[in-house]
Amino acid sequence: MTGSTAIRVETLSKTFDTAAVLHDLSLDVRAGELLALLGPSGSGKTTLLRIIAGLDFPDRGRIVFGAEDATRLPVQQRAVGFVFQHYALFKHMTVADNIAYGLNARKRADRPGKSEIKRRVGDLLDLIKLSGFADRYPSQLSGGQRQRIALARALAVEPRVLLLDEPFGALDAQVRKDLRRWLREIHDRTGQTTIFVTHDQDEALELSDRVAVLAKGRLEQIGTPDEVQEAPVSSTVLKFLGDTIEVEAIAQGGEVRVEGRLTPVTAPAGLVGPVKLYARPWQLQFAESHEAHLHGTVRSSYRSQGRQRIEVDRPEGKTVVVEASDTARLPAGRAVGLRILAGHVFAG
C-alpha cells in the first residue's frame, strides 16, 4: 500500500528568535503511508509539520511535494489537510458548514454545485459516523466528536497529505484509544498519505506504518514500529520509546559483561571497553545469586497496567524497575538477584 515518495523534506533548518528548533532535518514520506513524528516536547516535530503545511517557513532547506518544490508555496495552494490539537472548528458555523468550508472557499469556477457539496458533506459525515449531526454547532459536541468533524473538514478538500498535530492530545484516555483505532480504519479505507505528530510512544507504535523519532530538532531514526523497537540506533531512541534501566557494562569482542558476568546481549563490532547496557523492565528476571548480573534490595512493588513492577535499589544507589510475570509480592528489604535476558548496548 505504500509506494513512491509523496513528500521529501530536505536539510530543513529553522530558528525561532535565537533557539534552533530544526537542524538539517531530512526525511521522505511515502505515498499512502501513515507516518508518526514522535518526539518529546521541544523536539521540533510540530514545527516540522507546520512547515510541511505552509503555516511556517524554513530558514534553509526544501519541501518537495511529488516533483514540485513547495518550499515557498503559500498554504492555500499546498492542498494539505490540517487537523489541530484543539480542533479549531469554526464555532459560529454548523457541522455541515464546517465540513463544507474548504469547498465553499474555492473560486466560483472550481466550486462544486450546492447539491454536490451537500452530497460530499453527507458522505463524510457517514465516514466519521456522525450522520445525524449536520445541523449541530461545535459547542454541542464532545471533544472526540469535534475532532472527528475536524478530520472530515480536512478530508473534504481531498488533500494531497493529511497532517495531524497531536490530534488526540486534548482527549480522555478512553476516547483517545477509540479514536486511534478509528483513525487507522479511516486511513486503511481512504489510503490517504498521513503524517501525525505525537509525544505518546504507544500511540505512534500502535497506529503508524513508520515512526520518525525526533530529538532536539534532529531525526534520530525512521523505520517501522518493529524496527525502531527492536533495533534502536541510539540510546535516545531507546529511552524515549519506553521505560529502561541503565547499567554499566564492559564490551569486548562482541561480548558484554555486567559485574564480570557474561550477558546474552551482543555488542556491535568496534564497540569495546566501558559501555552502557539498556534493558526494558521485562527483559530482567529474578535469579539466584550465582547467576545474577545485578544485586539489590526490594524497595517497593506496584501494579501497572495489570502487571507487577518491582523497584530494586542497587548498592551503588541506582534504582531499577523489573516487571515480573508472577504476581507474588516481594516484601520490601528482601535481597534479590537480577538476570539480564536481553538489551542493547551503546557507547557510554
Partner: peptide, 25 residues
Amino acid sequence: TAEEEAALTLGASGWHAFRTVTLPN
C-alpha cells in the same frame, strides 16, 4: 490564530478567512 490557520489550510484567501472566520468571531 488556530481558526484562521484552519481556514487558510482549507484554501481560503486571507480576505475570505477574515470575512468568514475572524469577523463573525
